[in-house]
Design a protein around this nucleic acid. Structure first.
Length: 665
RNA sequence: GCCGGGAUAGCUCAGUCGGUAGAGCAGCUCACUCGUAAUGAGCAGGUCAGGAGUUCGAAUCUCCUUCCCGGCUCCA
């Protein structure tokens, strides 16, 4: 093809332009405008994101990627990971590098340092400073392609790169490898080239990258962490450095600001500030106590849940916290789940006792206490069951990951014919319940048979998994697969909820189980007078009350809706002489069951008391003075309202509060 | 469990070179009695997470334990 052959490129707006064959994205950007050329970091040619410098040799569609786009930021972050690795090599000679992808909001790179050296926080500053120097050198990212053999030679002293190349060429690539190498057998390599033409850094990489390191400025290294090679705890632990990178300083600052805002919602901080719960060191890791205010919220959650379960056809049961080991031997927990259990209590001359990590075996025994008829099915047994799990020390986290928790747990015993309908019914039930608590953005996840820890046959698992899928599909929600994520006894559907700032939380789980009924030899008498084996559905809707509490706390940033607020109304007399009236107002509210406190004038100014109530995120602050005592009114300062209202008739306020609470607002 | 970082008053934090601790807020008392996000003064509050070691002397240096934070793995 001659150098002046023309190609036709189609721009995103549908217009076409002609260029010389071999023109690059950079040429196209420059021909459109100087500003675009400056902002460009990559190009999308026929749907594929490529380097700006990649020559285009045929008619194509093209879009210029600027840094301020999702694709652009990904390129930026991936390039920043290379820059970081280069800085690490400069400062830590002999380092080995593994993988360094872009991730949500940032990037990381995994390293192995010689002599078991570890990065510390001070190293992050040095590495970041070195990155800035390298960025200032304006090194060019240059793509090269090699065959596999040359690639292996090039990275001969880099065992992780060698493993990646071998995997790709052997066709056994793992997911991460596609970040690094193209799928066509060629090994893509990027070099960072200095202005004098020398090569400063080489990496195995699919790309694309920004044109030069000077494009990378708005970045920050955030933390250092251990990470297992291939995410496998049986393999080498590497040193991972996380960073974030953005199109400009303003976007970086905005990101850091978002992190700060999310920190303000942290349930651990809010739990302290609002006096809801604590984790006394004396009790032990992952074991919470709920204070009166937190206890109130929890009671309200439980009360509402009980009412819904009663309406939903559940029967209430109760079971102890400990049991003889035999029960968990029969259930398979001691074989499959022992590492999640607290060690046993040894009693002289008796069998061992265990704290329960799950409620299911107990509910099974309740089912088994009689001969059951098909007429009793589906039997739905519900309990707020407190369980204890020996979580590994590094995973305990606030209320979302604890060692003692209460599940809103139920086990549904039903026939094979009923199971799809029962799962569907449970899904509908949970979505309604979660919506009542103010969550309304969901998707579903279907977790399948674990690779190693699973009981039962493939056929049973397939049937159970298929039943869950059939139940989930009509819900009209996205269904995401989670291969290998099921429990040891059955697959599960989990409901994932997005909160007010877009984070997702695993809430409810619904599991279908053919195994435990068999292990416990459960049966019921059918209409044919024969024995049949029931199916079991395990389901917890809040997940755990502790976790759900944390999710709500973060979702609402501590400002619980009025129906859940530990204190719904604070009554503030303007001066001591209004105490009697304030007391009368409070009594009136308490008569209707509203949680009301009085903040008296003694020792404290009105302004400060308003502040205290507002800080505690009380939904309604009532200020009562001479005019109110005279007229039977209140001043209403509603949470979130711009200005307080004056002279509202007490009964009018009560009505307003009543309707808000009734609507669970 | 693994890697990194931590623990000083109820909370947030300061504490220099190793010489046994300090502030603000919260609490209590008194004064003030006030109409919508911090009135003033005073008082009290600490085995510096726990233990061992080094030292004439440890909040400070070393080791162990507990607990917390950020990740990895795991998970409701």
């Amino acid at each position: 093809m001659s150098s002046n052959a023309l190609i036709t490129l189609t721009l995103p707006d549908g217009s076409t332009r002609e260029y010389e064959s071999g023109s690059s994205g950079a040429d196209v950007a420059a021909s459109i405008g100087a500003r675009l050329a400056k902002a460009a970091v990559a190009a999308i040619v026929d749907g594929e994101v490529v380097d700006l410098s990649r020559p285009i040799t045929g008619d194509s569609s093209i879009a210029i990627v600027t840094a301020a786009s999702d694709e652009g930021r990904e390129v930026l972050r991936h390039s920043a990971a290379h820059l970081m690795a280069q800085a690490v090599f400069d400062l830590f000679p002999g380092a080995k590098y593994a993988i360094g992808p872009a991730i949500a909001d940032g990037f990381y790179y995994d390293f192995e340092l010689p002599n078991e050296t570890r990065f510390n926080d001070a190293d992050l500053e040095r590495i970041e400073a070195r990155m800035r120097e390298l960025s200032a050198e304006d090194q060019t990212f240059v793509r090269k392609e090699y065959d596999a053999q040359s690639g292996l030679e090039l990275f001969a002293d880099q065992p992780y790169k060698v493993e990646i190349i071998r995997n790709v060429t052997a066709g056994t690539a793992e997911d991460d490898d596609s970040e690094e190498v193209g799928g066509d057998g060629t090994v893509g390599v990027y070099e960072n080239v200095r202005s004098d033409g020398t090569v400063a850094y080489v990496d195995l990489c699919r790309g694309p990258h920004v044109p030069t390191t000077a494009r990378l400025g708005a970045f920050k290294l955030t933390r250092v962490a251990g990470a297992y090679w291939r995410g496998d705890e049986k393999r080498q632990q590497l040193q991972r450095i996380y960073g974030t990178a953005w199109e400009d300083g303003k976007a970086l600052a905005a990101h850091l600001h978002r992190l700060e805002e999310a920190e303000k919602r942290d349930h651990r901080k809010l739990g302290l500030d609002l006096d809801l719960f604590s984790f006394p060191e004396e009790i032990g890791s992952g074991l919470a106590v709920f204070h009166p205010r937190g206890g109130t919220v929890r009671r309200l959650m439980e009360d509402y849940s009980r009412q819904r379960h009663a309406d939903g056809g559940y029967e209430f049961v109760n079971s102890p916290h400990i049991t003889k080991s035999q029960l968990f031997e029969t259930s398979g927990h001691l074989e499959w789940y022992a590492e999640g259990m607290f060690p046993p209590m040894h009693l002289d001359g008796e069998t061992d006792y265990y704290l329960k990590p799950m409620n299911c075996p107990f509910h099974i025994l309740i089912f088994k206490s009689h001969t059951r008829s098909y007429r009793e099915l589906p039997m739905r047994l519900f309990e707020f069951g407190t369980v204890y799990r020996y979580e590994k020390s590094g995973v305990v986290h606030g209320l979302t990951r604890v060692r003692g928790m209460t599940q809103d747990d139920a086990h549904i015993f039903c026939t094979r014919e009923q199971m799809v309908e029962e799962v569907q019914r449970a899904l509908t039930f949970v979505l309604g319940l979660l919506r009542d608590f103010g969550l309304d953005d969901f998707y579903l996840e279907l977790s399948t048979r674990p690779k190693e820890k699973a009981i039962g046959t493939e056929v049973e698992w397939d049937e159970a998994t298929d039943a869950l899928r059939r139940a989930a599909e009509p819900m009209g929600l996205d269904l995401v697969m989670d291969e290998g994520g099921g429990a040891f006894y059955g697959p599960k559907i989990s409901v994932q909820a997005r909160d007010a700032i877009g984070r997702t939380w695993q809430m409810s789980t619904i599991q279908l189980d053919f195994q435990l009924p068999a292990r416990f030899d459960l049966n019921f008498v059918g209409s044919d007078n024969d024995k049949h084996r029931p199916i079991m559905i395990h389901r917890a809707l809040f997940g755990s009350i502790e976790r759900f509490f944390a999710v709500l706390l973060e979702h609402y940033a501590g400002a619980f809706p009025a129906w859940l607020s530990p204190v719904q109304v604070s009554v503030l007399p303007v001066a001591d002489r209004h105490e009697d009236y304030a007391s009368a107002v409070a009594t009136r509210l308490k008569t209707d069951g509203y949680r009301t406190e009085i903040l008296n004038a003694h020792n404290d100014t009105l302004g400060n008391r308003v502040r205290r109530a507002k800080t505690q995120k009380v939904p309604f602050v009532l200020v009562v003075g001479d005019e109110d005592a005279e007229a039977g009114t209140v001043g209403v300062n509603a949470r979130g309202a711009d200005t307080p209202e004056r002279a509202i008739a007490l009964e009018e306020f009560v009505g307003r509060l009543a309707s808000q609470v009734a609507e669970r607002g």
